[in-house]
Amino acid sequence: MSSTSYIDVRDVVKVYETATGGVTALRGVSFTVDKGELAVVMGPSGSGKTTLLSIIGGLDRPSAGEVYVDGQPIHKMTSRQLDEFRRRNIGFVFQFLNLIPKLTAYENIYIPMVARGVKDGKKRIEYIADALGIANKLDRLVEELSGGEQQRVAIAAAVAADPPIIIADEPTAELDGETIERIMDFFMELKSGGKTIIIATHDPRVSRKSDKIIVLEDGLVRGVYRGGELTTSEVAVKGYRDYLRRRLMEIDDELRLLGERYKRGELSIDEFHKRYNRLREIKAFLEDELKFG
């Protein structure tokens, strides 16, 4: 049975087999995303966000359920078909960036274009790099770039081959507010160009600009909100506020853990400060969201 939505996720279950038994990451997730939408998947750590994005992006197959992208049943595709599907349709921004350190920023961005058979991508790469503020970093090995710059290289790599769908897993993690704004502007520009974008994030600054928010928890969809519902629907607001509270508690735990690791000598002072400030920043924002949202 085909689907009318651009991306249609139906009762998707994903079980990972481990030595000690199966671990269920998704327990029957269903939602749709229309073409040209910017959808955000939110949820606490371990809720199944990355797994869900992997399945939509054709990196993995569901254990059960169906996934249609532009009418194609990707849950039925062979490995080779999935390769082709990814090559043609998906631009991925990985949570851990997954850039190839031995290659320069330019080469990393160029790779998806090679995969898609784009002959001369130089102008496009320069355009994207300029939009993301890394135009002067293209000749550098990625391992020589800062975390934020690497993040932008990863985003550039995802969009370089001009895929219709962009999937980004925590694309703004570890970034400062100014860079996040810049990246979101870039995503909005892509969206206005007709790209469908799915972003997994904790960051309310990202979710606020989305057309749709999918809240995952323990492998289940706890709520799907349209961008405008958060200002009109009581239920939507309540669900959203519950999510924010849980996220705040998580951040408190992360802060405590961070302090312990620092005391054990596992973190340098610089690393500790960087992460601590980042978490404090998010916490403050979430608290603001709770107070005024």
């Binding site: 390769d83 090559r87 998906i90 850039l99 190839i100 998806p112 995969a115 898609r116």
Partner: peptide, 10 residues
């Protein structure tokens, strides 16, 4: 894995 994820085939 990255190359595979970017759409390169086997």
């Amino acid at each position: 894995v990255i190359l595979r994820a970017r759409g390169f085939g086997v």
